[in-house]
Design a protein around this nucleic acid. Structure first.
Lengths: 130, 130
DNA sequence: CTATTTGCAAACGCTTTGCCTGATT
DNA sequence: AATCAGGCAAAGCGTTTGCAAATAG
């Protein structure tokens, strides 16, 4: 259970680079930064460690939980629910929180046009499979 | 400007399949469905048409706007802003909307554990580049 | 008629993996 | 010493693309 706990210099460097940036970089960018310090590090090591660090809860990966794109026949904004167990994606039938764009527009320097909101948890089917 | 307007039988079938499903299928699932009707359709045609239909505003693609994964050194939930022009991803420094999980839990049959919220629009840098 | 779209297959590009060597505990 | 991690390169895999033939308008 307690595996992958060796803090090698590669793993430390990757984590430090990621903790010290404001941006949300790609694996390749991280690779280029760490290479300044460990010139012979390989891209595979970067990917492996990013996955390990994510499993350890030290970082997050900002993808859609899958390598597949999913397509939605409804082009209007609406919210989704993704089941953590089976991966199904459902529509959520509630009104949009229209005011949150305004909140961010007022509190930050970003010019917000849209927002996307996704919930995760257990779908009804998987709740009944225990 | 007004291009890609031919409604071929392939394009029609893909759109119909997608409009008539509750799920948010992958391209491959759509391909399998359409093949029942047009057995010699190719997967490339499905992908091409999904992209065309998305540009026409008839459907949405649920990905992160890029094929790259992005990594975040902060493992706690927080919101992001993605610039539509330059693709940069920023943190948004506002409090979490903690109550929306409860709202969905009460109004739907899903068991919500988390939510993810992402805003899109123009970042300060790109706002100044006009 | 002709510009767009298709089918096919190869290419792409990000990510993962196998294998063997090297490092950590 | 035993196990875990790294480097390298090849494989994986969803998606895109080039090209000649087909087709919508």
């Amino acid at each position: 259970m307690t595996k992958n706990t060796r803090m090698t210099k590669q793993r430390k460097a990757i984590l430090r680079v990621l903790k010290n940036t404001e941006s949300h970089p790609t694996a390749d960018w991280i690779y280029e930064q760490v290479k300044k310090e460990i010139p012979n590090i390989s891209l595979g090591t970067v990917y492996r460690n990013l996955n390990v660090l994510s499993e350890l809860g030290k970082i997050q990966i900002l993808d859609y939980g899958s390598t597949y794109s999913r397509y939605d026949g409804n082009p209007k904004n609406h919210y989704h629910f993704r089941c953590e167990k089976c991966g199904r994606v459902y529509d959520i039938h509630i009104d949009l929180f229209d005011d949150i764009n305004k909140i961010v527009n007022e509190k930050t320097a970003f010019q917000v046009n849209e927002h996307r909101l996704e919930f995760t948890g257990l779908c009804p089917i998987c709740q009944n499979e225990n």
